[in-house]
Design a binder for these strands. Structure first.
Lengths: 341, 341
DNA sequence: AATTGGTTCTGAACCGTTACGGTCCTTTCA
DNA sequence: TGAAAGGACCGTAACGGTTCAGAACCAATT
């Protein structure tokens, strides 16, 4: 029976025809994929866990790019891509347990996420992306800290000392407002933590007292958040010469807020992002470009040739500092002041 | 055993603890999802078939919107979303056979696609989207023909009689060039066939000989195709007063080509699209807006409450004619001529 | 005629789970 | 005190494939 469908060379054409004929007559719909998966121990799909609501994957430009790359890798290997629903509100990890997959890709979830823990308990190969190196599973990412450090150095060389920061959520709880030093250090989102620490390092080296720098956090990741975050920084300290955002989407929002206030960019204020998305490029945003699609593809490749190897692999992709037209020297030097010793 | 994990109320806490303890000690990774699926006859996932390469889903704005809506519906129901790889080049339907899913959503594939046929043979509920009504499975779509008819009427009322058309692929074979009447009628992409036929009807009623209207087809769907398609129309007949594109992406490309030729829109030439994507909106494109996200969500909803019902359901969503700033009356009346009796 | 080799075909075991029904023990009530 | 009722626990039979060992068959060689 099975042979008739999958192993035509194992039986005579005559018998094969007879088997297939009676199968059709009996209304047999072909081998059941689930039963086959159970027996062969191959599901023919990889799971993608991203802790945002499922539909978020299709709203965030960077996530879309990542997905495109991952889909590309799956295509090549002929495997399916299962988007695992993982509502961040509920602690319900059942969806992870239910997923019939040959491996997982975990994309940018907080490092204390219960879904992540559930994935790691499953006995399948896993690749984490934009996460700390766990040492036990493969990892793909970029040097967030170093890239942001470089961007900061650029701003410092332009003369910026009085800055404000708008960042994405740092933990699972909602905190739309200023961020304490503790919260920065304890941040559960690896990416955000490292970008902030790259900033802190560079500006501290330049003599800026990081503890005095206004850093505001936004839970939701969209342009509106960027705008309101920028507003909060500017309300606190109208003298900031640069608004550093930890994503392009936030930066685009910050640009609209600057325009609303009649601030010319970069003459009155510098705005920077992170990611290198298309819309940012069109706006001439100064940013760090990271190869989002490549990241997805690399994750897929790593997962799909997960042969028995001794130690987990860790891949860092290259980033590129893009100097756009939203950054420039701060206006004048008279009112230029900075915190420091 | 099973009860310890899934039915805590069926046994005493004491026993449950003991079972779980020894399970952990033995390195038992928890119930196997595939075996569970086999036994319960529930895969906990719906499959999405779109005949483009998998990664296409993340490049096309309309597809992204559709996916977002579908993902939303899956989220609500707590089911996963499996993207089924279906390379249009190869006739390999194995991926459809391998997919362990509780149902399929089929999105905009040619009506003679072997993958579609394979899906229909599977004994699971199916929803087709932007496809002809098969009568045997649920369907979600819009009135492509009527919507395009309405758009055409608008252009006719503005005075356009000499037009050109750029459309997406009409069949599985690549045909980058002019389209014969035969090919138009035989088109295997339901959506394109109906949009063209809506145009043909409206312009025929206005006295235009449709067989003389240049219709150019492009296999790939991106802005470059729109630009080159527009170029081909304009080379054939530089006198056309309107370029009608069957998608916004193509129309955006057509706009760049018009600009390249120094044609002012809408003064020198009118350009229209279809879909109502964000980028088109920003460009002020005259188009038909369709609720792409709603379409995805409707498809998901239909699939997920596929209880035993007598007849398959068919849902048409409403569209809206958007008059932007890329359409206007043709310049002057002197050189205005049209084909006809 | 018996042995050998090769091919085609059949049957049984196994994958890991859940559903179901039966046994056993404890409690309750006449 | 005995019977009935109920709860906790356990054993077994599918679910629907794949795989593999070995039976059956046929032809060729010794």
């Amino acid at each position: 029976m099975s042979n008739a469908y999958n192993r035509p060379d194992q039986l005579s054409p005559e018998l094969r025809r007879r088997v297939l004929d009676t199968a059709r007559r009996l209304g047999y719909p072909g081998p059941d994929p689930v039963a086959r998966s159970l027996r062969t121990r191959k599901a023919g799909a990889v799971g993608l866990l991203l802790t945002e609501n499922l539909s978020y994957a299709f709203r965030d430009p960077a996530a879309i790019g990542f997905l495109e790359g991952l889909a590309l890798a799956c295509e090549d290997a002929g495997t399916g891509l299962l988007l695992v629903p993982a509502n961040p509100e509920r602690e319900d990890v059942a969806s992870v347990h239910r997923a019939g997959v040959d491996g997982f890709v975990v994309y940018s979830v907080p490092d204390d996420d219960p879904h992540l823990a559930a994935v790691l308990e499953r006995p399948v190969p896993t690749v984490v992306c934009d996460q700390p190196d766990l040492g036990t599973v493969d990892r793909v990412g970029i040097d967030d800290r170093g890239a942001m450090y470089e961007l900061a150095k650029h701003l410092i060389s332009l003369g910026h000392r009085r800055i404000g920061v708008v960042c994405m959520r740092l933990a699972r709880d909602r905190n739309d407002g200023f961020v304490t030093a503790d919260r920065q250090h304890a941040a559960h989102f690896h990416v955000q933590r490292n970008r902030l620490s790259g900033l802190a390092e560079a500006f501290s080296e330049a003599g800026v007292d990081w503890s005095q720098v206004p850093v505001v956090e936004r839970f939701d990741h969209n342009m509106a958040s960027g705008a309101s975050g920028a507003a909060q920084v500017l309300d606190r300290d109208p003298q900031v010469t640069a608004l550093i955002c930890t994503s392009d989407v936030l930066a685009l929002g910050a640009l609209t807020e600057a325009a609303r206030r009649g601030l010319r960019v970069p003459h009155d204020i510098t705005v920077t992002g992170f990611d290198g998305i298309r819309a940012g490029e069109e706006a001439g945003l100064t940013t760090v470009r990271q190869p989002v699609m490549e990241k997805g593809r690399a994750a897929g490749k790593l997962l799909l040739d997960a042969n028995e190897r001794s130690r987990p692999r860790s891949v860092n992709l290259a980033t590129e500092l893009i100097i756009g037209k939203t950054s420039g020297a701060p206006r004048g030097g008279a009112e230029e002041r900075w915190f420091g010793p």
